[in-house]
Amino acid sequence: MIINNLKLIREKKKISQSELAALLEVSRQTINGIEKNKYNPSLQLALKIAYYLNTPLEDIFQ
């Protein structure tokens, strides 16, 4: 099972779900679904998340 630290990292960087969704060009519901482990992001989306949060991919999804 993948450990998902997206919410923790996003909140630590003081970025809202809506702000991150806008940067990634996805819906806020997509971010919410990823954070609640209801949706697994594509590799492309996971890499974009890591880029915009300036955090290694391995720290977000373990």
Rank of each mutant, 00 (worst) to 15 (best):
M1R: 11
M1W: 10
M1E: 10
I2D: 06
I2M: 13
I2A: 10
I2Q: 09
I3F: 09
I3Q: 11
I3R: 14
I3H: 13
I3S: 11
N4H: 05
N4T: 04
N4Q: 04
N5M: 06
N5F: 10
N5A: 06
N5Y: 07
N5S: 06
N5H: 09
N5W: 08
N5V: 05
N5T: 04
L6E: 00
L6K: 00
K7V: 06
K7N: 04
K7C: 08
K7T: 07
L8T: 14
L8P: 07
L8M: 14
L8G: 10
L8R: 14
L8V: 15
L8K: 15
L8N: 13
I9A: 07
I9D: 01
I9Y: 09
R10N: 01
R10E: 02
R10V: 07
R10H: 02
R10Q: 02
R10P: 01
E11R: 08
E11C: 08
E11S: 08
E11V: 09
K12H: 11
K12N: 11
K12Y: 09
K12M: 14
K12C: 12
K13Q: 13
K13Y: 10
K13A: 12
K13E: 06
K13P: 02
K14R: 12
K14L: 09
K14C: 11
K14T: 05
K14S: 11
K14F: 08
I15L: 13
I15Q: 03
I15H: 03
S16F: 03
S16I: 03
S16Q: 05
S16A: 06
S16M: 04
Q17D: 03
Q17Y: 04
Q17S: 05
Q17W: 05
Q17N: 03
Q17A: 08
Q17M: 10
S18V: 13
S18D: 13
S18K: 14
S18Q: 11
E19A: 14
E19Q: 14
L20T: 02
L20Y: 02
L20R: 00
L20C: 03
L20G: 00
A21Q: 02
A21H: 03
A21W: 02
A21T: 04
A22L: 12
A22P: 00
A22Q: 10
A22R: 14
A22N: 11
L23P: 00
L23W: 14
L23C: 10
L24R: 00
L24E: 00
L24W: 00
L24F: 00
L24I: 09
E25V: 07
E25A: 12
E25L: 11
E25N: 14
E25T: 08
E25F: 07
E25H: 14
V26E: 03
V26L: 05
V26K: 01
V26G: 02
S27I: 03
S27M: 04
S27W: 03
S27V: 04
R28Y: 09
R28D: 09
R28G: 05
R28A: 13
R28I: 15
R28E: 14
Q29W: 09
Q29T: 11
Q29H: 13
Q29M: 09
T30G: 01
T30E: 08
T30Y: 15
T30C: 15
T30W: 10
T30D: 05
T30Q: 07
I31S: 00
I31E: 00
I31F: 02
I31K: 00
N32V: 15
N32K: 14
N32P: 01
N32F: 05
G33R: 15
G33D: 15
G33P: 01
I34T: 02
I34C: 02
I34N: 02
I34G: 01
I34M: 05
I34D: 01
I34V: 04
E35Y: 02
E35V: 01
E35N: 00
E35P: 00
E35D: 03
E35K: 01
K36L: 13
K36H: 12
N37R: 10
N37D: 05
N37V: 04
N37P: 01
N37M: 13
K38G: 06
K38F: 13
Y39L: 13
Y39I: 15
Y39C: 12
Y39S: 06
Y39N: 06
Y39D: 05
N40Y: 15
N40R: 15
N40K: 15
N40F: 15
N40E: 14
P41N: 01
P41Y: 04
P41T: 05
P41L: 08
P41D: 03
P41H: 01
S42E: 05
S42N: 08
S42I: 04
S42F: 04
S42Y: 04
L43D: 07
L43F: 12
L43A: 10
Q44I: 12
Q44C: 14
Q44P: 09
L45A: 02
L45E: 03
L45I: 07
A46F: 06
A46T: 06
A46G: 06
A46I: 06
A46Q: 15
A46E: 04
A46L: 09
L47T: 10
L47E: 09
L47Q: 11
L47I: 12
L47D: 05
K48E: 06
K48S: 05
K48L: 09
K48R: 10
I49L: 06
I49F: 03
I49Q: 00
I49C: 02
A50T: 03
A50R: 02
A50W: 04
A50P: 00
A50N: 01
A50S: 10
A50F: 03
Y51P: 00
Y51C: 09
Y51V: 07
Y51A: 09
Y51N: 07
Y51E: 09
Y52D: 01
Y52P: 00
Y52C: 08
Y52Q: 07
Y52N: 04
L53V: 03
L53F: 07
L53E: 00
L53C: 03
L53M: 06
N54S: 10
N54V: 05
N54I: 05
N54P: 02
T55Y: 07
T55G: 03
T55L: 07
T55V: 12
T55R: 03
T55C: 08
T55M: 10
P56D: 08
P56W: 04
P56T: 08
P56I: 06
P56F: 06
P56L: 06
P56V: 05
L57Q: 04
L57W: 07
L57T: 04
E58N: 10
E58Q: 11
D59K: 11
D59L: 12
D59N: 09
D59T: 09
D59F: 10
D59W: 07
I60R: 01
I60A: 01
I60Q: 02
I60S: 01
I60C: 02
I60N: 00
F61D: 02
F61W: 09
F61L: 04
Q62L: 11
Q62W: 12
Q62G: 14
Q62I: 12
Q62P: 15
Q62A: 12
Q62S: 12
